[in-house]
Amino acid sequence: MKKIINAVDQVEEQMVEGLCKAFPQYLKRVGDTHVVQRANKKEGKVALISGGGSGHEPAHGGYVGEGMLDAGVAGAVFTSPTPDQIFEGIKAIQTDKGVLMVIKNYTGDVMNFEMAADMARDEGIEVDQVVVGDDVAVDGSLYTVGRRGVAGTVFVHKIAGAKAEEGASLADVKAVAQKVCDNVRSMSMAISPCTVPASGKPGFELAEDEMEIGIGIHGEPGTHREKLQEADQIVDQLMTKILADLDFTGSEVAVMINGCGATPLMELFVVNNHVADVLKEKNVTVYKTFVGEYMTSLEMEGFSISLLKLDDELKKLLDAKADTPGFKVV
């Protein structure tokens, strides 16, 4: 394993500390936890908290700030944060309008966040939640735990965050967050794996000429493995699956081309070039495009495509001001 770290068991601590030192105008730590909250807590609004394992930076601490989250909780690398940490975050950001948890749909994340919510309710804090499952690669049937939450989660942070910033009620913020969940679809692929520091070994192996289609954000296996193709063919494959899952025809969409951690921006633009062409051909209008690293998987080389179907409310909230280290709309 070759990584720029000091000690395996200090990575999360030093990442959180370094993040806060980089953005003191936006962020501060909650006590000695791995929770970051807004440097200046805003009262009178629904407080939003999200989190997950570390290794997805800028998610989730990087999305704390005006118009998005009030707190982000960082677990160990690729491991859900623990209930006590989430609970500390909830306590730090709670307002009299309540707290909304944005959870990516993984068994561990859901369990830990729900335990934290139980702890918060015991103290009289109003807490509700949405669970994001935007990954069309995996089957959301009765025989699985439902679809995984991936890069589309960032749209939930953005739009629910904008709604909360307006002073909307917990029920209304939850409703719009759920609307995003219902209208966002994503799919990923990778050409090289990533190594969790504590493990020291790549999570999977791919031959020089292979790619994994439908991979998860922790390097979990996807739908299948095949020979590497040209970018346009890969895009066609992912887009076919995304467009088959929800009817986007005639609608306006927000597009997110997300790099998994080691993908050159150049290649992400090559990807977006064809995504835009496919959408045009399918009579889908691109309202706004985001290209960059939003939900990474350490140093995995690959990308995901997320499409969010928009209506007037979602467009307005997407355009609202967001000022965070990892996401800005001005």
Binding site: T79, S80, P81, T82, P83, D84, Y106, G108, M111, N112
Partner: peptide, 12 residues
């Protein structure tokens, strides 16, 4: 275990 393990196995 709940406060240190994380993932699914921590709560379980």
């Amino acid at each position: 275990l709940v406060s240190t393990v994380g993932g699914a196995s921590g709560p379980l």
